[in-house]
């Protein structure tokens, strides 16, 4: 009998490496599934760059209790872009001011290059003031014309200027950003949580009339208190949802964290 046979006779077969490979594979699968369920490799929801909705100008409200200007959509703040200042016309060349500084006793014969030969400093100042007044009047006229045009556009489209019935080019005309602002405001009133890093991702569907038709929690960190706070914030905010642009049903995703609300 050879030595190897003798050793085999003594040594009974033990669990080979194959069985241990199966065990190891099972161990790894359990680890990865546990990690997935515990969100060790949690991927944060991709959020769109935050658009901050700022009410630049609030038009005068006829009745403060109503909360919105007449003709505007209920609860929708109106945004009006402040007209850019018109560049001031240059009234005179720098050398025109020299006689004013150097006062009357100076010889005036050398001074007025453009105003005619017989213009005195007093006449020159009067002409300058007239020029300034006319420039200011032109600037005010232009600003008023722009405001009138915007109001006319608003009335023609039957919606408030800017949000949410705007054309999409004005500042703050992003409907989702508007909803985000409303949700953020409401969320600041209801926020509460107990988990370390709570997170709730929701999807809202708004019909053509601005009514919330669907509210779905797509992802949650499991904090019931935080979920309840989000739910109450949505219930508060939905009162201020205006009809979407175009009157079409829209669906948006939002991510709630203690730090705030983000669009998805």
């Amino acid at each position: 009998m050879t030595r190897r046979r003798r050793q085999q006779k003594i040594r009974q077969p033990t669990n080979g490496l194959g069985g241990m490979l199966a065990l190891s594979l099972a161990f790894h699968l359990v680890f990865f599934f546990s990690a997935a369920s515990l969100e060790l490799f949690r991927q944060d929801f991709p959020v769109a760059p935050q658009a901050i909705f700022v009410d630049m100008v609030t038009l005068p409200v006829a009745s403060p209790q109503a909360g919105a200007p007449s003709g505007a959509v209920k609860g929708a703040p109106v945004s009006v872009r402040v007209p850019a200042p018109i560049p001031q016309p240059r009234p005179a060349a720098p050398q025109m001011r020299q006689p004013k500084v150097k006062a009357a006793p100076m010889k005036s014969a050398k001074v007025p290059p453009k105003g005619g030969g017989g213009e005195t400093p007093q006449e020159y100042e009067a002409r300058l003031e007239a020029l300034e007044r006319s420039a200011e009047a032109r600037r005010q006229e232009t600003a008023l014309a722009e405001i009138r045009q915007r109001i006319a556009t608003r009335n023609r489209e039957g919606a408030a200027a800017g949000m949410p019935g705007g054309t999409g080019t004005q500042a703050g005309s992003d409907y989702a950003a508007y909803l985000q602002s409303r949700l953020k405001e409401s969320f600041s009133l209801t926020i509460a949580w107990q988990a370390k890093k709570p997170l709730v991702a929701i999807r809202l569907t708004i019909d053509g009339k601005g009514a919330l038709t669907s509210y779905k929690i797509e992802k949650s960190s499991g904090d019931v208190i935080f979920e309840d706070a989000v739910s109450r914030a949505v219930q508060l905010a939905k009162k201020h949802f205006p009809p979407p642009p175009g009157g079409k049903e829209l669906s948006y995703g939002f991510v709630f964290r203690p730090e705030g609300v983000d669009k998805r």
């Binding site: 080979g16 490496l17 241990m20 490979l21 065990l23 190891s24 594979l25 161990f27 790894h28």
Partner: peptide
């Protein structure tokens, strides 16, 4: 996977 199999073995 193989390392852990060897460790168990």
């Amino acid at each position: 996977v193989v390392s852990w199999a060897i460790i168990f073995y």
